[in-house]
């Protein structure tokens, strides 16, 4: 029902791709990073018949940016630390903690990976796989849900582009930008162009053609955790939809598959 190559895209673009947001939302992330400047390039082979995921994480003054790269992009090799993975399984293993990566480049800087980088990803994990008692803290809940929302929005793009069933859903999405929002707290725009999906860097710059809005972060969280159903929630107004409904409808079908990959 799921494939490891798509999972590697999610692990790179959605999970590690959330580190910039973590740095923006939790000051402890900046403290972990200090003023260190570092770039980490990651390239995953998709196998003989398919491209693999690639991206670059850049750290500077406690902040972080993430750049998605084209498969096999030479830009990855320009990073100070370069991690290459011969298979999606190996990369997914690093995310699970079962595989220890050996840098192809920047071996002498490996201390960044075992030190600040690991502490940063541990902090991210605490938010993305939260304990119930942590979620009782409103500040933690807010950051955790916003990060989760980001992971889900980016995962929608990964699944719509890479997963066989997800691509079937994306094939029915007309061009445009779909706003996914939780109240007025946070919003993302998923762009569709020729049935390829991408996350807009700035939703306010998009011409929105459809919208799926959760009443608030509580509703978003309940949906992400599978405690409420999107169809039922439309009826009681917790989720509102409007605009080009085939976009919302098919993104909703991809959302069903996000849960499979992130389980």
């Amino acid at each position: 029902m799921t494939d490891t190559r798509t999972l590697s895209y999610i692990n790179l673009h959605a999970i590690l791709g959330s580190l910039p947001m973590l740095c923006a939302l939790d000051s402890r992330a900046g403290e972990i990073l200090g003023k260190k400047r570092m770039t980490v390039g990651i390239s995953v082979s998709g196998g003989s018949a398919a491209p693999g995921a690639a991206g670059i994480l850049s750290f500077e003054n406690g902040r972080c940016t993430y750049t998605e790269c084209a498969p096999g992009s030479p830009d990855v090799g320009d990073a100070k630390i370069v991690l290459t993975f011969p298979t999606p399984e190996k990369f997914n293993g690093m995310i699970d903690g079962t595989v220890t990566p050996i840098p192809k480049k920047g071996l002498l800087r490996a201390g960044f990976l075992t030190g600040p980088f690991t502490r940063l990803t541990d902090l991210l994990t605490a938010y993305l796989r939260p304990k119930d008692e942590d979620l009782a803290d409103p500040a933690f809940f807010r950051i955790s849900t916003m990060l989760m929302f980001h992971v889900i929005a980016r995962s929608v793009c990964c699944i719509g582009n890479e997963d066989a069933v997800g691509r079937a859903s994306a094939s029915y999405i007309p061009d445009g930008a779909v706003l996914l929002a939780a109240g007025n707290e946070i919003s993302f725009a998923v762009r569709a162009e020729n049935h390829r999906l991408s996350l807009s860097p700035d939703p306010t710059e998009e011409t929105i053609t459809a919208e799926m809005r959760f009443a608030d972060l509580l509703t978003a969280r309940a949906l992400f955790d599978g405690k409420i159903n999107s169809v039922a929630s439309v009826g009681d107004g917790l989720i509102s939809i409007r605009g080009m409904i085939p976009q919302v409808d098919n993104i909703n079908r991809i959302l069903d598959r996000v849960a499979l990959y992130l389980a």
Partner: peptide
């Protein structure tokens, strides 16, 4: 139903 029936806004 309101979702499949596209009751917009509900």
């Amino acid at each position: 139903g309101p979702a499949e029936g596209c009751f917009i806004p509900t």
